[in-house]
Design a protein around this nucleic acid. Sequence first.
DNA 1: CCCATCCAGTGGTCTGGACCAAAGTGAGGT
DNA 2: ACCTCACTTTGGTCCAGACCACTGGATGGG
Lengths: 242, 242
Amino acid sequence: MAQAKHELVREHLLELIDSHEVGAAIPPERRLAAHLEVSRVTLRRVIADLVREGYLTRRQGSGTFVAAPKIAQPLTMTSFSEDMLRRGLKPGARTLCLEVVPAGARIARRLEISPHDHIVRVERLRLADDETMAIETLHTPVSVVPDLGADDLEQRSFYDLLTERYGITLAHATQTIEPTVTSPEESARLGVPDLSPAFLFQRVSYDAEERVIEFVRSLYRGDRYQLVTELLPARGRVGGRA
Amino acid sequence: MAQAKHELVREHLLELIDSHEVGAAIPPERRLAAHLEVSRVTLRRVIADLVREGYLTRRQGSGTFVAAPKIAQPLTMTSFSEDMLRRGLKPGARTLCLEVVPAGARIARRLEISPHDHIVRVERLRLADDETMAIETLHTPVSVVPDLGADDLEQRSFYDLLTERYGITLAHATQTIEPTVTSPEESARLGVPDLSPAFLFQRVSYDAEERVIEFVRSLYRGDRYQLVTELLPARGRVGGRA
DNA sequence: CCCATCCAGTGGTCTGGACCAAAGTGAGGT
DNA sequence: ACCTCACTTTGGTCCAGACCACTGGATGGG
């Protein structure tokens, strides 16, 4: 099967970007288009995507240049492990409990299943440089991950497990973030004073068929974890939309 | 000056979207292109943008449909006013104090100026539906905004002011987000119990010449404000890019 | 030596048309 | 009543070329 042309062009451009220093110019559009044997329209569509994703910058009258890599590209879908590695910390995990229980009303609603359906409920401490960084409670329908064992999660990440054993790839997720303070129990587990500031993350993830795969509740200690986002001007209009 | 054609098409489509129910189909591309007297390529470019921004969804073989409005699209660079409007609330502001003072060491470092340089320091309450939503403290070098008066900020946003009176457009910003709890003074101003959870936003904004324009510290009450982000899988290559 | 001007090269916008792929529709057969 | 299959409609991809707008260097005059 032949890939779409713009996919091939994209691959080629990414290699081109990798082989250039930051700030270096890539060949002009007309030349590139001729060389790759595509129309300029097609090439420009690919370049536009790469510019939007931050790989390239364009200057009219001047050229197209390799952009500096983003320092902390913020809220893409990363696992805890990736996140910690990016922050220069050694990620780890300790499973506190793994049980199969009926979902119950609240979790069932999030997972879009019946309250009587069973789920796997995993409670874990997430570690960074061997210090507790967060408490994570994972809920997944049993039907999605049959035969999941406690030791499966010690070595590799849940997302690797999903991909390799169950052939599931997450397509997108919705996450809410709230500030909160720790309860006595949470404080003890995190090793922080009672009523310490913390982030409460709640995430619902979907696969390509829009099936709900997981609901994750994570409590991050606020003294060691902060979010950094690089903001770009909003494009387009402001008001509107009833 | 005549606007670019795709701008006009975009305006037209946004009106079309506003006048349709969620889920309703908009006219097929070929008909729309003919009606608006633009080529299909141009129309498709506009539609592609609107799809990316979440206004429309496309289904091959079926049609293009008005998408459900996003509850809260995440972390682009928006003003408080835009943010509240998008959440369906009436934005407002009350300036508590506006003074010109020496920057001091901490602020000077953020603004990349000398500690003896003077800054404008503005403290404001941000309101949503006439209820206090956040406390905002704005710091800007006097050299950037000479002759700024207190009443300038009551009517329009600081960003409009920057653009219209001073000709400054913000290019990007770095923002950190932390969970915290309110102090007695903050609690009183926000109208929440002492030690309530809150978000602390700290933002440094730059113009196109990489000059630091502002440092903003915002404290949002956690009981009425939450962040919602739509997460997508990390794109493409993980390593790479020397 | 310096500056204004010009111009070639770059990205930016737009066109009209061709063909492909998926999804809905309806006629005909069972 | 039900299924099947061909056909129509819709979005998806791609092209070759025209013209505009901005930049930066070359050129020539002061």
